[in-house]
Nucleic acid binder design. Structure first.
Length: 286
DNA sequence: AGATCGCCCTGCTTGC
DNA sequence: TGCAAGCAGGGCGATC
């Protein structure tokens, strides 16, 4: 389940191993992996051939590789289980290999997109004047972006008629926060997931944002979170989160602050983990 | 137009 | 032991 820190680890891997290389051959092995490329796999492959990758960029959980001198980029999202691997050309195909990209150099390695659950994919898009693939122009900056607009974020929280966890997962307000880190940031902030955003004072929302940023930076420092073998970084090494999570996945385990058993609640076809004592539900509004 | 919710997919886990 | 249901979940798009 790659979240923002894992995607950033992958971006760095791409920067190191793929930037500057020129594509000679593209194989699309599963149509779902290019479903965001409306013209289809053959078009994706032919348009990519001969192009040179520039340094990978990222916003939230999206990453993209600009193609030199074209005004276009290969946009990627890892979804639930996607991996971008730089592998020796003669390495056996992974079971869930979806896309293979070969290069014109003599390094003997190729780029592979591997994805078990096929929520992720690659596609080719024009760039906006900001250098963003046009289809993600609506995605907000993420908390690790130096240009993240904190004041605008706080204003939006006050104006929205929604609850705090929904807002954290709303990619048009703040990007890169998934279910896991949302629960972590809320636990650290002692906020219940159903708290209406309009009731958050500026200091409270600033604290929440700070915790979201801290969780991500800590995960980044150890190479990204990973609970299972699904997440592997660009070189095939598993990331890990040594200091285990405080909230997510800890149902019935003692809260690390107060010892109260943590709870899990079904929430939007997902789960929310929280401490019933530290994170009190909001009073029903009249 | 903001808010909500169903759907896409596969494999592991759980329960009968 | 085997099968089916449950669960994981980001983001898109339909709907109200």
């Amino acid at each position: 389940m790659p979240e923002l820190p894992e995607v950033e680890v992958v971006r760095r891997g791409l920067e190191r191993w793929v930037a500057g290389r020129t594509v000679t051959e593209v194989e699309v092995l599963h149509p779902r992996a290019v479903r965001r490329h409306p013209a289809g796999g053959a078009d994706f492959a032919s348009r990519l051939k001969g192009q040179r990758f520039e340094v990978a960029r990222r916003r939230g959980k999206y990453l993209w590789l600009p193609l030199a001198d074209t005004g276009t980029s290969v946009l990627g999202h890892l979804g639930m289980s996607g991996q971008l691997l730089v592998q020796p050309e003669d390495a056996a195909d992974e079971k869930h290999l979806r896309i293979r990209i070969r290069f014109d150099d003599a390094t003997g390695t190729e780029l592979r997109f591997v994805d078990q659950r096929t929520f992720g994919g690659l596609s080719l898009h024009d760039q906006t004047p900001d250098g963003l693939p046009d289809v993600i122009a609506h995605i907000a900056r993420d908390p690790l972006d130096p240009e993240f607009d904190e004041a605008a974020f706080h204003r939006a929280l006050r104006l929205r008629r929604t609850t705090v966890k929904r807002a954290l997962l709303d990619q048009s307000l703040i990007s890169g926060v998934g279910n896991i880190y949302a629960d972590e940031a809320l636990w650290r902030s002692r906020l219940h997931y159903d708290r209406p955003t309009a009731t958050l004072t500026r200091p409270r929302s600033a604290e929440l944002l700070g915790h979201a940023r801290d969780v991500m930076n800590e995960a980044l420092a150890v190479g990204g979170t990973s609970f299972d073998s699904l997440y592997v970084n660009v070189n095939g090494e598993s990331g890990y989160f040594d200091r285990s999570l405080d909230a997510y996945g800890r149902e019935d385990e003692p809260c690390r602050r107060c010892g109260t058993p943590m709870r899990r609640r079904p929430w939007m076809n997902r789960s929310s983990y929280f401490c019933p004592r530290c994170q009190r539900p909001p009073r029903p509004s009249a």
